[in-house]
């Protein structure tokens, strides 16, 4: 009898997440820790934590972490990485953090080709503060600040982060993955590993956008939230690898 699954060592012993039931953050954190374990980076890693539900991350990780101002995780990560080029520096951010408040800093990390890894969890709203409209909110989606649904004439169109990051020359890897089902979680695992690998090989900026369920603010059961990702979110945000300089993932 052999143990084929165990909780990654990068997580603190007996960690209990404080996320809502069915939240995708739990899976995303576990996949990230698995990738760090696979490359044996725990002693050498520095985590840049964004604001929002992602800010809980340093309670769970057995890794050095910095809490960054809203949206500025990639900017702070740039400084940390340039001073400590041998360290593995990664940022863990939400879509509101990465693509609204920190849009400039985030895009310039790709434009400058910083050796960073970013995991961006996209759940189409500001989850921690009560589900307000974020930059990635779908057209017609009801949130607390768009009670009649997001109207493109009034609120504009959703931001497509992974495609946008992929267009810069400094970006080494950009992909969009989902956590709605077992096959997609396995693909997400591979993409996160790749984003870490491009930093270790000093190829440029590694980015992964993760479509993640937010059952509490979507007012759905966890299973309905996964269905919502498949039915509605994937139409607006198609999954795939948009850039990979190593050419290994398609």
């Amino acid at each position: 009898m052999q143990q084929v699954f165990k909780i990654p060592d990068s997580l603190k012993k007996n960690t209990e997440y404080t996320f809502c039931p069915g939240c995708g953050h739990g899976v995303a954190v576990r996949l990230l820790c698995q990738a760090i374990d696979d490359f044996n980076l725990r002693e050498n890693a520095i985590c840049m934590v964004g604001v929002g539900c992602t800010a809980f991350l340093y309670h769970f990780l057995d890794i050095d972490a910095l809490e960054c101002p809203h949206g500025r995780a990639t900017a702070e990560g740039t400084g940390v990485k340039r001073i400590n080029p041998d360290k593995f520096v990664f940022t863990y951010q939400g879509d509101g953090d990465y693509a609204a408040i920190g849009m400039t800093e985030s895009m310039y990390a790709g434009i400058r080709g910083e050796n960073l890894t970013t995991i961006c969890v996209n759940n189409t709203n500001y989850g921690m503060t009560g589900g307000q409209m974020g930059p990635t909110t779908l057209i017609g989606q009801v949130t607390t600040t768009t009670p009649y649904g997001r109207d493109e004439k009034l609120n504009g169109y959703p931001v497509k982060i992974a495609e946008q990051v992929a267009q810069y020359k400094g970006t080494a890897f950009s992909a969009r993955v989902s956590l709605d089902s077992v096959p997609n979680i396995i693909k997400a695992q591979a993409a996160i590993k790749k984003a870490c690998e491009v930093q270790i090989k000093k190829l440029g900026y590694g980015f992964v956008e993760i479509l993640s369920p937010c059952p509490t603010n979507w007012k759905m059961t966890p299973e309905q939230a996964n269905e919502h990702i498949r039915e509605n979110m994937m139409k607006e945000y198609p999954l795939g690898v948009f850039k990979d300089v190593t050419g290994e993932m398609k």
């Binding site: 699954f5 165990k6 997440y17 939240c23 899976v27 089902s181 077992v182």
Partner: peptide, 20 residues
């Protein structure tokens, strides 16, 4: 069958081990 599907989807680390 020890396929790990449950452990992969569990968002709360409640499935602590899969043995096969």
């Amino acid at each position: 069958i020890g396929c790990k599907s449950c452990a992969l989807v569990c968002p709360d680390l409640a499935i602590t081990g899969v043995y096969r």
